[in-house]
Design a protein around this nucleic acid. Structure first.
Lengths: 160, 160
DNA sequence: GTGAAACCTCAAGTGGACTTGAGGTCAAGG
DNA sequence: CCTTGACCTCAAGTCCACTTGAGGTTTCAC
């Protein structure tokens, strides 16, 4: 492991596309670890890039940083994680994604009929559907649409 | 329009599943309007339920409250909105949803191969894929996965 | 040797969508 | 008459994932 195998925070940022401030933040949360140079600068091992890739992917699947940190804590400290380690952590995401996709498809299909009818409410439409009809369904009325997936795209491009 | 056609905030909350505090908040943002009783209490018209249904649906599609408010401002003030009005507003959501679904499917399919290989990074894997490889792609390197759809389900059930 | 760039820490700010709390009013039932 | 509970306003707090800023040190190229 030569010195050039260790990345400074700027280098890691450039290679990962994650802002230095975010990297420090991640380290605070325990998602990342670093050693320090004599003058106190962070030195990250190269496999931190893979860790970051995992973090990104997990975020895309909808995990919070806390959940991700918890998952990462199950990695062996002693050795560089293997592909099998990563595969283990990401098992289960598939199902999660399937659910999210199904929820969105339901929304889209509901929307398909709604655009025709313009109803956008009441039991004819599963697009929104609060429990109108004065509790005709009892307390455990219609569940709302899966609240998956809010929030629009964020400023991701540094360009512009 | 009899008095019973007007809903108090509690009643509206119960029928819509939206918390009173949220309803007041929406009114502040201009998503909702109300008249007031002599003693200053809010009275909502019944079609506010449909407005709320629209808000919910729009949120599910990924719009912010500001965007929703803007859309709602294009509704005619004078009359109760028609189905055609609602349909007009929700046109365009379809495409948005299609995009979101496609993004998620790409993520899932990428994941499929990654679970096998455990790579979870580098150019072999489109699950995460920051621009590693020291800018081999130039400044306009791989765009990250669509950052659609973060954040997990929120406490939606009052039950429990 | 000097100035810019890169790094450090720690505290506070941001944005979106609300909720919570303090402090007060009003209507209805017993 | 009194209490309970539904409602009011306005300010501040919460959560998540970061970013920004102030104030200070180190490293590097010239």
């Amino acid at each position: 492991m030569r010195a050039t195998d260790l990345l400074g925070i700027g280098e890691l940022s450039r290679r990962s596309g994650v802002a230095p401030s975010a990297l420090r933040y991640y380290e605070n949360l325990g998602l990342l670890t670093s050693t320090r140079s004599p003058s106190g600068r962070r030195r990250f091992e190269r496999h931190t890039l893979r860790r970051l890739a995992f973090v990104r992917a997990a975020q895309n699947v909808g995990l919070t940083l806390d959940e991700i940190a918890e998952a990462l804590r199950t990695l062996p400290e002693a050795r560089t994680p293997t592909t099998a380690d990563w595969a283990r952590l990401s098992r289960g995401w598939q199902a999660r994604l399937d659910e999210q996709i199904a929820a969105l498809q339901a929304l889209r299909d509901g929307l398909g009929s709604c655009i025709g009818c313009g109803c956008l409410s009441l039991r004819r439409c599963r697009l929104s559907n609060p429990r109108d009809d004065a509790g005709a369904q009892g307390a455990s009325g219609a569940a709302y649409l899966a609240p998956v997936l809010r929030r629009p795209a964020r400023r991701e491009q540094t360009a512009e």
